[in-house]
Design a protein around this nucleic acid. Structure first.
Lengths: 199, 199
DNA sequence: ACAGAAACAGAACGTTTGTTCTGCTACAAC
DNA sequence: GTTGTAGCAGAACAAACGTTCTGTTTCTGT
């Protein structure tokens, strides 16, 4: 009997994610969300307990709909450093493709903004970090297996270096370097890694 | 005749810098500033036009009193990659020494929080980036000169990679890795660089 | 066509924000 | 000790915040 809803919980989380991604948590007011999502306050509070819960949902959606599709290949059994390179390139391309240039990575942005003072968000970001590290380690191990010589490098430590570099890349992509520069940095960094693990 | 001031413009900027450093711009209210600096609202507005101007002053103070002392040696004529290593280690130690652990780097925090939507702040951060890149390039060139063989690497591109890594390091240091892990990452990264430029 | 359930738009709520104002107080000069 | 300048603490301000509420509209089931 009731009137049909003009949006779903998912479409709302998607719109909110995009807004939080580019403007951050504090930089996004409920009024901004009403305007950018096209959903009334009532509609938002019907689906989510408040702004914070909506943000957590946006973070979750980002994980499943942005990170996972891009990172799945790095987590695959046959992943190597070429796969990692493709992952970074894909992320750089994607920012333009979905019309969110200079937005970096929602997790990287969240790391410095609100995670330090919100334990739930902190854990979420920490888990993302662990995931990246595990994926990178997987790619490193596969890459090392393919090479002929013995591998003496501590791959787990190198995976951590890759995580640090990734964070820096996404932070830098928030308007401090053009795509070409970013791509070049990815190439140079991965070349260094390749040399390191075959030494 | 008038009563003596209980603070100077510099001591106020210093206190404000520490608060902004650990809590960010949006995460710091004027009330927080009054409490943490011990200066009344009147005193703050006497020295600064508003919260934003105080933040810019804090950013400037951070540049001169935190970055410059630490980075000066990297900018010196005799700097090499060991100097860069010492710079990173010093920054990691310093965070604990001045009782601001898990605060990362004020510039790195600012990059993602407010710089994207404030051109004056953006330029300030951009200038800091350029400075880092120039300093790292200086160290790379000196290091290359010392080695025997010919240097084919594009040092300017590697300097950019170093900037990206540095940003990632400071972001990660905001509570996502302990000091030992950070130190290890610095060592591993610089080892990779050393190999790269002597190839 | 009718009834009613629920989504809609937007007003209204109490807080908190950054900023300004007011009365009191402390201290150097005389 | 008296005086006067300018510091101080905190009240007061409008605006913006996240949240809640109210009245209207819309569409399904009968």
């Amino acid at each position: 009997m009731p009137r049909l809803r003009s949006h779903t919980k998912e479409s709302l989380a998607e719109s909110a994610m995009r807004r939080f991604w580019s403007h951050g948590f504090e930089g996004t007011s409920m009024d901004d969300l009403v305007k950018s999502t096209g959903v009334s306050r009532h509609g938002i509070y019907r689906d989510f307990a408040g702004k914070r819960e909506l943000f957590l949902a946006a973070l979750d959606r980002y994980k499943h709909h942005v990170v996972t599709p891009a990172f799945a290949q790095v987590e695959a059994d046959d992943a190597d450093l070429d796969t990692v390179a493709a992952f970074f390139e894909y992320q750089i391309d994607q920012a333009v493709a979905i019309d969110l240039p200079r937005s970096g990575c929602l997790f990287a942005n969240t790391m410095t903004e609100i995670a330090p003072h919100d334990s739930a968000v902190h854990e979420c970001v920490q888990a993302h970090h662990d995931r990246l590290r595990a994926g990178f380690l997987n790619a490193l191990q596969n890459n090392a297996c393919k090479s002929d010589g013995p591998v003496s490098a501590d791959l787990a430590a190198l995976a951590q270096v890759m995580v640090v570099f990734a964070q820096g890349l996404w932070t830098t992509s928030r308007g401090y370097a053009d795509d070409m520069t970013l791509r070049r940095s990815v190439t140079d960094f991965l070349d260094m890694l390749r040399v390191r693990i075959t030494l």
